[in-house]
Amino acid sequence: MKNRLKVLRAERDWSQAALGKKLDVSRQTINALETGKYDPSLPLAFKIARLFGMQIEEVFDDGESSTKSLH
């Protein structure tokens, strides 16, 4: 799953460690998220979206079209 975490973090001039502290996770976790090695749990994804004042879909992209509905 792709995400905009690196861009959003850079826009705010936060280090990985600083972002990790805000989210209560390790710097390694932020690095793994940014490099796409790890997809966050739903609670962490919500926490990230809330921190940046965005919807989850604005931060994370699972590759599916946002207009596609579930049937």
């Binding site: 209560d24 996770v25 390790s26 390694q28 976790t29 793994a32 998220l33 790890y38 966050p40 749990s41 962490l44």
Partner: peptide, 8 residues
């Protein structure tokens, strides 16, 4: 007690 990625 570790964060979720390190736990994994």
């Amino acid at each position: 007690g570790l964060d979720e990625f390190i736990q994994k």
